[in-house]
Simulated scan of single mutants.
Amino acid sequence: MRLVIADCSVDYEGRLRAHLPAARRLLVVKADGSVLVHSDGGSYKPLNWMSPPARLHVAPPAPELAAEGVVETWTVQATKSDDRLVIQVFAVHEDVSHELGADPGLVKDGVEADLQRLLAEQLELLGPGHTLVRREYPTAIGPVDILARAADGATVAVELKRRGDIDGVEQLTRYLELLNRDPLLAPVRGVYAAQLIRPQARVLAEDRGITCVTLDYDAMRGVDDSASRLF
Results as ranks from 00 to 15, higher is better:
E124K: 00
L147A: 00
L132P: 02
G127C: 09
D152C: 09
K161P: 05
L125W: 06
A151I: 02
A113F: 13
P128W: 00
A154S: 15
A154L: 08
Q116P: 02
L178E: 13
A151E: 11
T155E: 05
L115M: 13
V133C: 08
D165L: 13
V156P: 03
E136H: 11
I146T: 04
H130V: 04
A150I: 05
T139G: 06
E112S: 11
E136Y: 07
A148Y: 00
K161I: 01
R134S: 15
T173Y: 10
T131D: 06
T131F: 01
Q171T: 06
D145K: 01
D165W: 13
G153H: 09
R149V: 07
A154P: 02
G127H: 07
E159Q: 12
R174Q: 15
G168Y: 11
A113T: 09
E112G: 07
L179A: 06
L125F: 03
I141T: 14
T155M: 14
P143E: 12
G129L: 12
L178K: 12
I166H: 13
Y137P: 02
V144Y: 01
D145F: 00
E177P: 00
Q171M: 10
A120H: 07
Q116C: 14
V111Y: 14
K161V: 04
I166K: 15
K161C: 07
Q116E: 15
D165P: 04
Y137C: 02
L179E: 01
R117I: 06
T139R: 04
Q122G: 04
E177V: 14
I166C: 13
A154I: 03
P138R: 10
Q122C: 03
P143Q: 07
D145A: 09
L125R: 14
A151P: 01
Q116T: 12
T155P: 04
V169R: 11
G164P: 00
A157I: 04
L179G: 04
G129I: 10
V156G: 03
L126K: 03
R174M: 13
E124M: 02
P138L: 01
D165V: 10
G142R: 08
E121V: 03
E136I: 06
I141R: 14
L126A: 08
G127P: 09
L179T: 04
Q122I: 02
E136D: 12
R163P: 00
L132F: 12
P143G: 00
P143S: 13
G129S: 10
R174F: 08
G129V: 06
V144Q: 05
L132H: 11
V144E: 04
G153V: 02
P128H: 12
D114I: 00
L125A: 06
Q116S: 12
T155H: 10
R135E: 15
D167Q: 12
L176N: 08
E159Y: 04
A113S: 15
L176R: 11
A151H: 09
H130C: 14
E112V: 08
G153Y: 07
G164I: 05
V111R: 14
T155K: 07
R163E: 14
I141D: 07
V156N: 03
D152N: 15
V111M: 07
A120D: 04
L176D: 07
D152W: 06
L147N: 01
A148W: 01
E121D: 15
Q171F: 11
R163S: 15
L119H: 08
E177S: 13
T139Y: 08
L179V: 05
E177F: 12
L126G: 09
L178M: 12
E136M: 07
R117Q: 13
L160H: 05
A151N: 00
Q116H: 11
Y175G: 08
